Simulated scan of single mutants.
Amino acid sequence: MPRISLETTTGSENFAYTITTPTDTSTTEIVQGLPTVLFLHPVYIGSAIFHPIYADTRLRRFNLVAMDLRGHGWTTAKVEDTYGSEVAAQ
C-alpha cells in the first residue's frame, strides 16, 4: 500500500492509501479527467473494507481512492489529545 507524507497541523504525517482506476487495481496516480470517489472508513475498521468494491465494474469506471485514517492500517499519523473533527477534516 503506497503512502504519502503530508504536513498537517500536528506535524509531518504518513498516510497509507489505495488508488484503483478502470485499468489498474492498485496504482499511485488517478486517471486525469475521470471523476474520483473518495472512500472514508468508519472507526476501528481500516480501508481494507473497501477492497471488494474495487471489483464492481460499475464503480471501476471512476478513480477510487481509499485511505487509512489516523491510527488505522498502515497510516502512521498520530492521534493526540488535540485530535478532533477540525484536525480530521484538514
Rank of each mutant, 00 (worst) to 15 (best):
Q32E: 14
T36H: 08
L69N: 12
G33R: 06
D68F: 02
R58L: 09
S26V: 11
E29N: 14
Y54P: 01
H51M: 09
W74A: 13
L69E: 10
D68C: 03
V79S: 08
G46Y: 05
I53P: 00
K78D: 12
V31K: 12
T82F: 09
Y54T: 15
H41C: 06
V65W: 00
H72K: 03
F39D: 01
V79A: 06
F62H: 11
I49P: 00
H72N: 11
H41F: 01
T36F: 01
R61G: 01
V31I: 15
W74S: 06
F62L: 04
H41E: 04
D68P: 00
V79R: 15
T75Y: 05
T28Q: 14
G33C: 03
S47P: 00
I53S: 04
H72P: 01
F50L: 08
F50H: 03
R70Q: 10
T36Q: 08
S47A: 15
R70Y: 04
R61N: 04
T76H: 09
T57V: 12
R58T: 12
H41Q: 14
A48V: 12
Y44V: 13
H72S: 11
H51E: 14
L59I: 03
R61Q: 15
V43G: 10
L64S: 05
E29S: 13
A55V: 07
P52N: 07
A77E: 06
S47V: 01
S26D: 13
V43A: 13
T76G: 12
P42T: 15
G73C: 07
G73R: 05
F62K: 00
V43Q: 10
Q32W: 00
A55N: 13
V37E: 04
P35R: 13
A66P: 00
P42Y: 08
E80T: 15
I30T: 15
E29D: 12
S26L: 15
Y54M: 07
V65C: 09
T76Y: 08
Y54H: 11
R60W: 01
V37T: 10
R61P: 00
D81G: 04
T75G: 08
G71L: 02
A66F: 02
E29P: 00
E29Y: 05
L69I: 07
P42K: 11
T75M: 05
R60D: 00
I30M: 06
E80M: 06
P52M: 07
Y44S: 13
S26E: 14
L59R: 02
T82P: 00
L64M: 09
G33A: 10
L69D: 08
L59N: 02
R61A: 08
P35E: 10
R60I: 01
D68R: 05
P52D: 09
T25K: 12
D68M: 04
L34Y: 05
T76P: 00
F50V: 10
L40T: 14
I45L: 14
L69F: 09
G46T: 13
L34P: 01
V43T: 15
E29H: 13
L34G: 03
L34W: 04
F50N: 04
